[in-house]
Simulated assay, not measured.
Amino acid sequence: MRATVWTVANTLGVVAGTPGELLTALLAAPRRPDRVVLPAGAPGVGELAAGLRALGPVEVVWEEQERPAPAGPPRLSDPAAVCAADPLRVTRAYEEEPGAHGGLRAAWLRAGQALVRDDQTPPGRALALLAALPEDAAAGVRDELSALARDAPWSVAGVREGRVTALTVCGGQPVGTGDRRVRALACLGDGTRIELDERGRLRTPAAPAPRLVEAVAATLATHPATALAAVGDTVLTGDRMGFVHAFSLAGLHQAAPHSGRVTALAATGGPRAYSGGADGTVRLWRPGADEDRRPVVARRPHPVAALHARGTALAVAWADGLVELRDRDAARAVRTFRPGPAVRAVALLPDGTLAIGTDTSRVRLRPA
């Protein structure tokens, strides 16, 4: 069943592991599909079709699948074998076989949506599995996956299990939370940590709050925000109408770079602000500069899920599960990674690693 859901979710540009999660993701998406192609005869596909039709006027089309010649079961405890085998067959084998297999089964079922993609490679599967391995995985499995992932564009620098809902860097140190009520974290130049809650209100663990934070909090109490960032003495917020607001003691600057909800913000010195939206664009904005100069930095047919910037580098997470590291000064302009689960937050750390937060873990990747 997971293989079917992952395959359909990849086709539709969302992240989901169960039929319920798939339907919820489609309901929350800016645009619902008019037509969905389902693999005829796949496990659980009838239940999935009924759920999709319940969304509204969705045309469900059945596609006959090629029937490969029968083959023996993949060696589920062999990292090289599972990375090279048919990923749909591996998924079904792990669903039927409850053994731990050195941690490979848990990692596969966690990262599976990234593993079954048509554009995935054996080194890419090894990297995704390495990032998804449980803490008690067998050392031999971890070592073999590391060897198999040598040709991947990243290496895994660390993994910490547990939910992550927001990430940032404060005082040179990563700061994160797994609190479902926190939508975003940010830090001002003086170290003041601020949070955006699920209602779009601003709060800070420190008391008393700086005057600027109090002023922004008062504004958001009546005009809730959908995104948050901070740099120096500037607090940036985004809203559901596509506006970005830069608050500082010197005044307020505003722009409307997006069509629809602002879903993520990031900022660096200058200040330079990056905004991501449900419209699938990431734009660069300099508060107080020419209103007409808000160039598109990235564009995809999926909403932006998270942003973080450091120096010339920008990390972008998309709603379909893709993470990009963009750096205009790097030899490789764009590096990509898919962890499998939905990405909730990203952060570029001072040691050069990229932290990625999901509902199951925080992974640190180092560009290879």
Rank of each mutant, 00 (worst) to 15 (best):
A217L: 01
D179V: 13
E161K: 11
G178A: 11
A217T: 07
P208Q: 06
P208M: 04
R193V: 15
G189I: 10
V169M: 06
G171F: 11
I194H: 00
A215G: 11
G232E: 14
D190Y: 09
R181N: 14
R203T: 12
D179K: 13
G178K: 05
E198G: 09
G191D: 12
T222D: 10
R160P: 02
T226Q: 03
P205M: 01
L236R: 00
A209N: 07
T165M: 03
T204M: 01
R199D: 15
R160S: 12
E161L: 14
R180I: 09
L220I: 08
T237V: 15
A209E: 13
V235Q: 00
R160T: 14
T204Y: 01
L188I: 08
A184M: 12
G176H: 11
L236T: 00
R181Y: 14
A209Y: 04
A166V: 07
A227F: 02
T192L: 08
A215D: 11
E195H: 07
T177N: 04
D179A: 15
A207K: 10
T226Y: 03
T177E: 05
G162K: 08
T226S: 10
V164E: 04
G191F: 15
G172A: 02
V231Y: 01
G176K: 07
L167H: 00
L228H: 03
P205G: 06
V235L: 05
L188M: 14
T177Y: 04
T192D: 09
V169S: 07
C187A: 10
E161T: 13
R201K: 09
R193D: 06
G232P: 05
